[in-house]
């Protein structure tokens, strides 16, 4: 981009205003209309991305996942959340293709065959589901547990306009799961 040097003492270049104005009008006329997002979509997207990222730092025991089968990602969620989680379908977790499975409710029967269970929007977590998860090496991820309520293995906590993670390491170990220390560095570890 070689531009010949010339000595200009330019003020507001009148020649620039007309093209720039025309440009602005052209853009305003042709620019795509903004797709208004449903309130809370961004937060759901961040949570979905966080669960997906977390799953990438966890190792499941060989026996828990069928050799050539899919990785089963189960969730209990409302419609907007399910729509956002659908983006994970087909992506790779534990070197296997992810299959999303939406559950109406979580109990010992419905969670059979899941590798990861994500309970959104503070759905109640029962001790029955916890026992089934530990036995079946299911990674239990919950949103913002209430004070005193069961908190699962990994919690997504929102604080100060950011998401953060908390991990119940003992429960994770009981389920024969292993979490990479890279993730533990960034999470609050609750013993």
């Amino acid at each position: 981009m070689r531009i010949p040097f010339h000595n200009t003492v330019a003020r507001m270049p009148g020649r620039m205003t007309a093209p720039l104005a025309a440009l602005t009008l052209a853009v305003l006329a042709l620019a795509p209309l903004a797709m208004a997002q449903a309130p809370g979509t961004r937060e759901r997207q961040i949570r979905a991305a966080l669960v997906y990222k977390v799953s990438r730092f966890v190792t499941w025991p060989e026996a828990a996942i069928p050799a050539r089968g899919p990785f089963t990602f189960c969730h209990v969620s409302d419609d907007p959340t399910a729509e956002v989680l659908a983006g994970i379908e087909g992506r790779s977790i534990q070197n296997r293709r992810t299959r999303m499975r939406r559950l109406d409710a979580a109990d010992a029967r419905t969670v059979a065959g899941c590798n990861l269970l994500y309970l959104t929007g503070r759905s109640a977590l029962t001790s029955e589901v916890i026992t089934a998860s530990v036995a079946g090496a299911i990674l239990l991820v919950v949103d913002d547990p209430r004070e005193g309520a069961e908190a699962g293995m990994v919690q997504l906590v929102s604080h100060d306009n950011r998401m953060s993670l908390a991990v119940d390491l003992a429960l994770v170990r009981n389920a024969r799961l292993r979490i990479d220390s890279t993730l533990l560095q960034l999470a609050e570890v609750r013993q």
Binding site: P32, M35, I46, A48, A49, Y52, K53, F57, S158, N161
Partner: peptide, 27 residues
Amino acid sequence: LPSTLVHAAEDFLDLNLREVLDLDITT
């Protein structure tokens, strides 16, 4: 300029973990 009026929704699935934890929930 695109000829359609579709605007792709953002998703954060391709960011790395640190980047997701750095995102503002409400901009």
